[in-house]
């Protein structure tokens, strides 16, 4: 192969000793080829993802309306933290963080059972994963029907003597209803990731645990959790990101942030300030706050998990 290449070059070049000028020109095109291949993608990402990030941070320090374009220092951030709606949104973020362990434990446990081959384990993965591919809009639309005050769920609960609950109309209940629907719709995603993690687990460890007569909870604590620390870390971070950035469709369809603004999340707040209230600078401040929240929560989780599992990754 290697020997045939000079003759091939010579043949295609036409002139027996390949002209050096042409060769250099060709190699320059070759040297630039990788750059040419990445250039369009880099251009799109820089112009439409990274540049807007800087623009937005800068934008959050300018004013809205009459003060459009003038520097206002931290005014937007002060307005933001004075706004009861944004404070509710932050409180709801706190709630999500508290609910996070549950949202991760459910798919984790289910994946464990599937991995341990409970009866019917072949079917569950495909069924549980399905809602995760549906749009939040479709999921939300379906659940507005199911959770309506005169809807099926209340009819069902009424049948066993539990009074009707105003799932989406009671300010104390609505956020839990929406988060519950979000967990219903997305636990399959985490489940599939967990199962992929289990596939990398050394089966002999589980056999050893069984031989030693370990109980299920002992096996989970001492074999599965340490063995899957990286997967758990991945699921925690992605579930948190999902809760903070992919509930817009549900909120938009199910509650529009109500009742009484009780189901606001930062992403919904950004949308209303930008789209409805025409206050883009304030919305930018909320965007920057959301970005910081995600950084802090993400890093804190990784830190906590590292200490909990006593393992250094990477």
């Amino acid at each position: 192969m290697a020997q045939s290449s000079p003759s091939l070059t010579a043949k295609t070049a036409g002139v027996p000793p390949a002209p050096p000028r042409r060769k250099r020109a060709g190699s320059r095109a070759e040297r630039l080829a990788p750059l040419v291949l990445v250039a369009p993608a880099v251009l799109v990402i820089v112009v439409m993802r990274l540049w807007p990030l800087l623009l937005g941070i800068n934008f959050s320090f300018t004013g809205d309306g009459d003060r459009d374009g003038t520097a206002v220092g931290f005014d937007n951030y002060l307005t933001l933290f004075d706004d009861p709606l944004f404070r509710t949104a932050l409180r709801n973020v706190g709630l999500l963080v508290l609910l996070l362990p549950v949202a991760v434990a459910i798919p984790g446990l289910l994946a464990t059972f599937i991995y341990l081959k409970v009866p019917g384990h072949r079917v569950y993965r495909g069924v549980y994963f399905f809602p995760a591919v549906l749009s939040p809009v479709i999921v939300g639309a379906i659940f507005t029907l199911l959770l309506a005050y005169d809807g099926p769920l209340n009819t069902l609960l009424g049948g066993v003597g539990i009074g009707p609950v105003d799932w989406l109309g009671d300010p104390d209940v609505a956020i839990f209803a929406v988060v519950g629907v979000h967990v219903w719709a997305t636990f399959g995603m985490a489940l599939v990731v967990f199962l992929a993690g289990f596939a990398t687990l050394d089966p002999s460890l589980l056999d050893a645990a069984e031989v030693d007569g370990a109980s299920l909870s002992q096996t989970i604590r001492h074999v599965i959790v340490p063995g899957l620390s990286r997967t758990i870390q991945f699921v925690l971070v992605t579930t948190m990101i999902g809760m903070l950035t992919s509930m817009f469709g549900l909120l938009y369809v199910m509650t529009s942030g109500g009742p009484e603004g009780s189901t606001y999340l930062p992403e919904y707040y950004i949308w209303t300030q930008q789209g409805q209230m025409n206050r883009p600078a304030l919305a930018s401040a909320a965007s920057t706050a959301l970005f910081l929240i995600m950084l802090v929560v993400g890093l804190a989780q990784i830190g906590v998990l590292r200490r909990a599992t006593g393992k250094e990754d990477r």
Binding site: L53, L55, G56, P266, I270, Q274, S284, S287
Partner: peptide
């Protein structure tokens, strides 16, 4: 995330 850059 998109929410962070959507305004600009």
């Amino acid at each position: 995330p998109f929410q962070v850059i959507m305004v600009p």
